[in-house]
């Protein structure tokens, strides 16, 4: 059994960085904790929920997807080399690892996005089992678990009352990482701690059945009333993948950028002619819920939400996906539709 002292996680990060990995870990950043690239001296924090999700490192907020040299009325395509550094997502949440199934699917379900795939192939995923959860956590309602190994190449288990960590490799990438960790891990024995108790709060199949029949329900106004359309939920969400494509140019060069976008923004679906098929915030919030709990399940047999609760922790208006889903389930119980 490979173990290390919980206080030595930064030594492991140092060793892996020395072995050529870009090490992504939850670190203290001002008064918040966020996933960031490890640098010596940073403080690793596994006891607080990071505000961002691990998707930042596979599907960056903004990236160059095409480049041209502009020559007056003509142009010359230039080489595009999106970086795909060897990366380890270390001590991320199991819900972050679980979200990769969704991203892998979207970026490959028909056309294969090699920009994403190159980074994904170079990434080793090492989640840390959660021994504590907060009121916004609901992974168990959407098929996850605080000790889930879904999407993981290796799993870190807190052990011996939190004083140690067990590193359990699960795939070849995980084994290679253990190899690279060398002396930062010791052979020994430790007793794994119990995972957090996360009670299931709703049944996504019931939510999905209600959604199928209630595109026009009055409940949407109520559920979305507080929404400011700021998009913070989408940026923090590990599965939100909507993006915009924008050109930026000087006189001599242009780049095409892929930038995160959100169906919560008013301009997201607005046509050039002025018509907007989703004219108000209720229509936009409905799309967010429908997409995750109806459209994605229908097409990909996945739930488009991992229950991480980031959107609720970050929402300036206090809205919560968990609350929306439990409310919808309540509604479904009131008027039992034809269950599918």
């Amino acid at each position: 059994m490979k173990i290390l002292d919980a206080s030595k996680l930064s030594d492991l990060a140092d060793t892996l960085a020395g072995a050529g990995y870009r090490v992504v870990v939850p670190v203290q950043d001002g008064d918040r904790v966020r996933y960031a690239e490890w640098s010596p001296g940073a403080t690793i924090r596994t006891d607080a929920f990071p505000v961002n999700s691990a998707k930042d490192f596979l599907f960056p907020r903004s990236e160059v997807i095409d480049r041209y040299q502009l020559d007056g009325d003509d142009f010359t395509p230039l080489e595009v080399r999106p970086p795909a550094p060897r990366t380890v997502l270390l001590a991320v949440r199991p819900c972050d690892a679980a979200s990769l199934a969704m991203l892998d699917t979207i970026f490959n379900w028909d056309y294969e996005d090699d920009l994403y795939n190159a980074r994904r192939a170079a990434t080793t995923v090492v989640p840390l089992v959660c021994t504590r959860a907060d009121a916004q956590c609901f992974c168990t309602s959407v098929g996850g678990a605080p000790d889930s190994s879904a999407g993981a190449d290796a799993l870190l288990h807190p052990a011996d009352g939190g004083s140690r960590l067990i590193l359990e490799p699960l795939t070849d990438k995980g084994k290679a990482l253990v190899e690279a960790a060398g002396g930062a891990l010791a052979d020994g024995k430790a007793a794994p701690d119990a995972p957090a108790d996360v009670p299931a709060r709703f049944d996504p199949d019931k939510v999905r059945a209600w959604l199928a029949d209630n595109f026009e329900a009055d409940l949407w106004d109520l559920l979305s009333y507080a929404c400011l359309g700021c998009g913070a939920c989408a940026y923090a969400c590990p599965t939100c993948h909507c993006f915009d494509m924008q050109d930026e140019a000087t006189r001599t060069e242009s780049v095409r950028l892929r930038n995160w976008d959100s169906c919560g923004f008013a301009l997201f679906t607005k046509h050039a002619g002025g018509h907007n098929p989703r004219p108000d915030q209720a229509a936009r919030w409905r799309n967010r819920v429908m997409h995750k709990f109806s459209y994605i399940p229908e097409r990909f047999d996945l739930v488009g939400c991992t229950g991480c609760g980031r959107c609720a922790r970050l929402c300036p208006a206090g809205m919560a996906m968990l609350e929306a889903c439990t409310r919808i389930e309540e509604e479904a119980r009131k008027a039992p539709a034809h269950e599918s």
């Binding site: 997807i65 095409d66 595009v80 970086p83 090699d114 170079a122 892929r258």
Partner: peptide
Amino acid sequence: AAPTREHRNIYQP
């Protein structure tokens, strides 16, 4: 390992 002009990039026209 990264895509280049020689690699496939579905966004490149």
